[in-house]
């Protein structure tokens, strides 16, 4: 059983993007995020072009724009960290807020920097989503191996991803069981002292640890019985075809152009 992540069901849609060599997709995604990060603050035209490119890929991959947009909101809570920029960067004052005893004023420079950080981050997340939604996890790991990520790390990742769904099931059952035991009356205060609650959570963690440990023993024995020698082997050669090279070249050209536009326009 593979990992049931929310993107799993998008893996079976045949498209020219799904079909690309996973190495190309990993490299292009990293280059894309790299290039977005290099764009200067307030290069709105360039940001827009990157977004168009992201949407175009999403359409070609038949993912639908909604999926990418919806999933891209995960990084939003972190915006709280950067919002301070609006009120601390020196610049022309836009408006002033009265917060209790404090008076804080927003500056135009701060607003530009804050929105730029946010947009760049949002674009990067969308690129990462495109990569995972169009690439099967074993292919992704295989690509990492080809890109010289150490074999031990990739093998651990492969085992992890393989058993993640099992352990997530396990933890879901533990949590459901705790919830079922923890009834509270409508008025009453439930759940004992803080220490007691922490101990329950700790016991669940310890329980999960022991179950995982025993499972890994069984897995190892089963794998040794099947000839495991410390590494995954694959019969999928992952050979670069002409269109893989073309896609790589096209992506590189597009990113360079956007980079150039972003610097000349702003």
């Amino acid at each position: 059983m593979m990992l049931h992540n929310a993107l799993d069901r998008y893996h079976d849609r045949p498209s020219s993007i799904h079909d690309l060599d996973p190495r190309v997709k990993v490299v292009v995604t990293l280059l894309g995020i790299f290039s977005v990060l290099l764009l200067p603050d307030g290069a709105w035209g360039a940001y827009f072009l990157v977004w168009c490119a992201v949407l175009a890929v999403a359409l070609v991959a038949r993912l639908g724009v909604g999926l990418v947009l919806r999933r891209s909101l995960v990084a939003l809570p972190f915006a709280l960290v950067a919002i301070t920029l609006v009120f601390t960067l020196p610049g022309r004052t836009l408006f002033t807020l009265q917060l209790g005893a404090w008076e804080i004023s927003a500056s135009d420079a701060g607003l530009v920097r804050f929105s730029s950080v946010l947009v760049r981050s949002w674009l990067s997340v969308q690129m990462a989503i495109l990569l995972v939604a169009t690439t099967r996890i074993p292919d992704l790991l295989h690509a990492l191996r080809h890109l010289h990520v150490p074999a031990l790390l990739v093998t651990i990742l492969a085992f992890m991803v393989r058993y993640l769904a099992v352990l997530l099931d396990e933890v879901t059952r533990l949590l459901r069981a705790r919830q079922a035991r923890s009834a509270a009356s409508a008025q009453g205060k439930a759940g004992g002292s803080l220490l007691w609650r922490a101990r329950v959570a700790g016991n669940m963690t310890g329980q999960l640890f022991l179950r995982s440990l025993e499972r890994s023993d069984r897995i190892y024995n089963a794998m040794v019985a099947r000839g495991f020698r410390g590494q995954y082997v694959t019969i999928n050669p992952h050979r670069m075809r002409r269109r893989d090279w073309m896609a790589l070249g096209l992506a590189f050209a597009a990113l360079t152009m956007i980079q150039w536009l972003g610097r000349t326009l702003s």
Binding site: L164, V166, M204, S216, D217
Partner: peptide, 19 residues
């Protein structure tokens, strides 16, 4: 090797246990 893989999955899953 399988132990570390399963342990990584364990940490991931254990991060969901809250109180």
């Amino acid at each position: 090797i399988p132990l570390m893989g399963v342990m990584a999955a364990f940490i991931f899953a254990a991060q969901m246990i809250n109180f």
